[in-house]
Amino acid sequence: MEVRTIKVFTTVDNINLHTQVVDMSMTYGQQFGPTYLDGADVTKIKPHNSHEGKTFYVLPNDDTLRVEAFEYYHTTDPSFLGRYMSALNHTKKWKYPQVNGLTSIKWADNNCYLATALLTLQQIELKFNPPALQDAYYRARAGEAANFCALILAYCNKTVGELGDVRETMSYLFQHANLDSCKRVLNVVCKTCGQQQTTLKGVEAVMYMGTLSYEQFKKGVQIPCTCGKQATKYLVQQESPFVMMSAPPAQYELKHGTFTCASEYTGNYQCGHYKHITSKETLYCIDGALLTKSSEYKGPITDVFYKENSYTTTIK
């Protein structure tokens, strides 16, 4: 009895394709271990004539594949690729409408935090270190965002349907971005203890939790000093293409032309909904596939993004 075979390709990165001759009487799992086709788990399936010449994702289970996976995804987590594939199996079914010149995501599976993050990423200057993220990001900007969303979920250790947080998501993504040249110098002034300067680099240099107003941050924000008295913390120097200011959701007025974009969060910790506000020729609110415009805006804002380049204080 002759062994019926077909020729397929296996890959971990969709760049390096490895030619395989597979036995049609055995499952993919018996031949390769966990195997995925377009995100779908085909591990328990036997090869079919229609699979001839198709590319299958496999887990990096030998040295060659491990090197290829690390170079593309910059992670050695053995569960990463499987999590990416199972997320992709959902995100490829989502709709990605162009809204006001940006790629958004039609609401499904509690994905409003991903839509808000995706919209924000198209408006701030950011370059990702893992080629996987950078490639998928370019495709997302062009309207094909399924891979990018699935990668975000995998890097953030999230599953489809789980509630997510924009600030946490951005923080994970910033860790995989090139923020080497970003720098922030802060000064804390206390009447009792004097003053202390701190220099922050990388992710810490672009994120701040405690106030939404970048102007206020430049002037000074009140913080408790270690001595128990009130101290003032203010920005001395900022070198970065953008800054992200966050605070627990509270009524906040966004003035046209003073910011790049913002995240609105309605609801409580267990259950809520994100919308995205962007400042173009007027203010726009993007909620999944829905767009509304207004000249002014007041609502429960939790993150505001500002364009920056270089700032030095005039406070002496």
Rank of each mutant, 00 (worst) to 15 (best):
V3L: 14
R4H: 14
T5F: 13
T5R: 13
K7I: 07
K7S: 13
K7V: 07
F9L: 11
T10S: 07
T11H: 00
D13W: 15
N14M: 13
N14C: 11
N16Y: 14
L17E: 07
H18W: 08
Q20D: 07
Q20P: 07
V21I: 14
V22I: 06
D23G: 11
M26Y: 08
T27Y: 09
G29A: 09
Q30P: 11
Q31V: 06
T35N: 07
Y36P: 01
Y36W: 15
L37G: 08
D38V: 09
D38R: 09
D41L: 10
D41V: 11
V42C: 12
T43R: 10
P47G: 07
P47N: 01
H48K: 14
H48N: 13
H48S: 13
N49C: 14
N49F: 10
N49I: 13
N49H: 09
S50Q: 14
E52A: 12
G53N: 09
G53I: 08
T55Q: 09
T55E: 04
F56E: 05
V58Q: 06
L59I: 14
L59G: 07
L59W: 15
N61A: 12
D62F: 08
D62V: 06
T64H: 11
L65K: 11
R66F: 13
V67F: 13
E71Q: 08
Y72W: 06
Y72A: 13
Y73R: 03
Y73A: 03
H74K: 07
H74E: 09
T75L: 10
T75Q: 11
D77G: 01
P78V: 09
S79L: 09
S79F: 15
F80T: 05
F80R: 04
G82M: 15
R83A: 08
R83S: 07
Y84R: 06
M85Q: 09
S86W: 01
A87C: 14
A87E: 12
A87K: 11
L88Q: 04
N89L: 12
N89D: 10
H90I: 10
H90F: 12
T91G: 01
T91Q: 01
W94S: 02
W94Q: 05
K95G: 05
K95T: 14
K95L: 14
Y96H: 04
Y96D: 07
Q98A: 14
V99W: 12
N100H: 11
N100K: 14
G101V: 04
L102R: 09
L102F: 07
T103F: 08
S104F: 06
S104R: 03
K106L: 10
K106I: 08
A108W: 03
D109G: 08
N110T: 01
C112S: 01
Y113L: 02
L114V: 06
A115P: 05
A117Y: 10
L118S: 07
L119M: 06
L119A: 00
L119Y: 09
L119I: 09
T120P: 06
T120K: 00
L121F: 07
L121I: 09
Q122N: 03
I124R: 04
I124M: 04
E125L: 04
E125K: 07
F128N: 05
F128A: 03
N129A: 11
P131D: 00
A132W: 02
L133K: 05
Q134C: 08
Q134D: 13
Q134W: 02
D135T: 08
D135R: 08
D135S: 10
A136L: 04
A136Q: 10
Y137A: 06
R139Q: 11
R139D: 09
R139C: 10
R139T: 10
A140L: 13
R141Y: 06
A142I: 13
A142R: 12
F148K: 02
F148D: 01
A150F: 05
L151P: 04
L151H: 02
I152G: 04
L153H: 03
L153R: 00
L153C: 04
A154G: 01
A154T: 06
C156N: 11
C156L: 08
C156F: 04
N157T: 03
K158S: 08
K158H: 01
T159M: 08
V160S: 00
G161K: 03
E162R: 02
E162F: 02
E162S: 07
L163Q: 01
D165R: 04
V166Y: 10
V166M: 07
R167S: 04
R167A: 01
R167M: 00
M170G: 04
M170C: 11
M170Q: 03
S171C: 14
Y172L: 14
Y172A: 11
Y172G: 11
F174K: 06
F174P: 06
F174I: 03
F174S: 02
Q175R: 13
Q175A: 13
H176L: 13
H176D: 04
H176E: 00
N178F: 00
L179N: 00
L179A: 07
S181N: 15
S181H: 14
C182A: 09
C182E: 05
C182K: 10
K183R: 12
R184I: 00
L186V: 14
L186I: 14
L186K: 07
L186G: 08
L186T: 14
N187F: 05
V189Q: 06
G194K: 10
T199Y: 07
L200E: 00
V203S: 09
E204A: 11
E204L: 04
M207R: 06
M207A: 05
Y208E: 07
M209G: 08
G210T: 01
G210F: 02
L212R: 02
L212V: 12
L212Y: 07
L212S: 04
S213V: 01
S213Y: 05
Y214M: 01
E215L: 03
E215F: 04
E215T: 07
F217H: 01
K218C: 00
K218V: 03
G220N: 00
G220F: 01
G220H: 00
V221Q: 03
Q222F: 09
Q222L: 12
P224Y: 09
C225G: 02
T226D: 13
T226C: 12
T226M: 10
C227K: 02
C227R: 01
A231M: 02
K233F: 04
K233M: 15
K233A: 12
Y234R: 13
Q237Y: 14
Q237K: 14
Q237P: 03
Q238K: 02
E239D: 09
E239V: 11
S240W: 03
F242I: 01
F242E: 09
F242Y: 00
M244H: 03
M245C: 07
S246E: 01
A247N: 10
P248S: 05
P249I: 09
A250G: 10
A250W: 06
Y252P: 01
K255S: 06
H256L: 15
T258Q: 13
T258F: 05
T258I: 10
T258N: 07
T260P: 01
T260M: 13
C261N: 00
C261P: 09
C261R: 01
S263E: 01
T266Y: 05
T266S: 10
G267H: 15
N268K: 15
N268V: 15
N268R: 15
Y269I: 15
Q270N: 13
C271Q: 14
H273K: 04
Y274P: 00
K275T: 15
H276P: 00
S279P: 06
K280W: 10
K280F: 11
E281G: 07
L283K: 01
Y284H: 10
C285T: 09
I286N: 05
D287E: 04
G288H: 06
A289L: 05
L290P: 04
L291R: 04
K293G: 10
K293H: 12
K293Y: 09
S295L: 14
S295N: 00
E296T: 14
E296V: 13
Y297T: 00
Y297S: 02
K298D: 09
P300V: 14
P300F: 14
I301K: 00
I301M: 06
I301V: 10
T302M: 04
D303R: 01
D303K: 00
V304F: 00
V304C: 00
Y306E: 09
K307E: 08
N309R: 13
T312F: 11
T313E: 08
T314L: 15
T314E: 12
K316I: 15
